[in-house]
Design a protein around this nucleic acid. Structure first.
Lengths: 216, 216
DNA sequence: CCTAAGTCGAACACATATGTTCAGTTTAGG
DNA sequence: CCTAAACTGAACATATGTGTTCGACTTAGG
């Protein structure tokens, strides 16, 4: 029979090699598709399957052989990216040392990765099933969220605003910086510093600013 | 002759009543379409012409009679919204009093309007001609930009980061707050306060925070 | 080297969106 | 009240996207 359709388990979460041992070129094409889809989706959300196949350098039929629908592909890309991003984020050792320093490391190392993830998530948000999104969302946000909680406990980050809002603030400015780099308004190498200079004052407890010697 | 096609000048910028005096119902439908398009576009960027016509309560043909293409409609909506938004923004008297207070007024009065405008602009950004966008963009951003410049001159806002970035920061957090209100994470009435509490520290000159008595 | 796994382009069915045309109906407004 | 302006649904042409099927070709890998 012509096409493949071997059940397609493109290294989902825990790379369980259950049944269908794939051939080497199939494996190679899958990763090529995943990479191409990542690029295409982040560049423009409405990227067609045709465009993705072309970018990956494979036929459209091959694409459908591995990912039977756009929805499946998008979810696979999301999953794949989260896995890669997590590894990069962990490089910054977000759980060690003062929270402020950890945040600084996180920003410098992975602002680019985090933004890519954010953009992907935005697409998924309006194309994927909300139920499926929830778990992806939680897994994605948790890294930054935990860091912020730790900072609050240390007294380094403010507690007068909802935690959720602080997370949103971080991601929002992260995205803004990435977008400005894209349009050329901001330089690659200064982005992290600008981001840090903007975020830290916004996250600091408001008392830290007001605490001025109450003299005449 | 069936359809209308009277050259369609739906109150563009300076409402010049050049030649084609429109009938009352035509005028009424045009504003209905403009309103409907605004709602549809901001709710979901890919809204179809059919959906917009249905929302406006007019036939699809009527829509095309006034706005010969999706592109024209989008541009008209953008133009219309900017005009309306400008009026609301001016209510906050952004050029009077201390810049910090003016920003606070601006946020409380018009964060919602500004966000609506931002969303529209995002859509236009990927559907309209870049050249056309430029002027719209400048006209939109200028209000906030001028306020920030004034604040810098007063010494109330930081000058260690690019002005462009400060504008981006304001709009970015504005949008984030609006999105959080939409998802229910933030309450309508607290949004402006949260926004202000986050933005002011981020915009303040960094010296104000660091200025601490250098004691042992 | 030989077979099954994989790939390929072409073509199909289907759905949806954009504009257009037409013929019939409503309505504003003098 | 009467006419021209405006609205209407139905149907058309066109384009693009999705997902499938088919037959032929290539290649991995025992």
């Amino acid at each position: 029979m012509g096409t493949t359709d071997t059940g397609h388990q493109p290294d989902g979460a825990g790379e369980k090699q259950s049944a269908p041992r794939r051939r080497a070129d199939a494996e190679r094409n899958i990763t090529a598709i995943l990479d191409a889809a990542l690029v295409c989706f982040t560049e423009q959300p409405q990227a067609s399957m045709t465009a993705i196949a072309r970018t990956a350098g494979v036929g459209r039929v091959t694409l459908y052989a591995h990912f039977p629908s756009r929805e499946v592909l998008l979810e696979a890309v999301l999953d794949h990216t989260i896995t890669l991003a997590s590894a990069v984020i962990d490089t910054a050792a977000p759980n060690e040392g003062p929270a402020v320093d950890a945040l600084s490391r996180l920003l410098h190392i992975s602002w680019h990765v985090l933004d890519r993830h954010r953009r992907l998530f935005e697409i998924a948000q309006r194309e994927l099933d909300p139920a499926v999104l929830r778990q992806h969302h939680d897994q994605a946000m948790s890294r930054v969220e935990q860091l912020l909680i730790r900072g609050q406990q240390e007294g380094a980050f403010r507690t007068d605003l909802p935690l959720n809002w602080l997370v949103t603030t971080v991601y929002s400015l992260l995205h803004a910086a990435a977008a400005d780099v894209n349009t050329g308004h901001l330089k690659q190498n200064t982005a992290a510093d600008v981001l840090e200079a903007t975020l830290l004052p916004a996250l600091r407890p408001p008392q830290a600013t007001v605490r001025r010697r109450r003299r005449g």
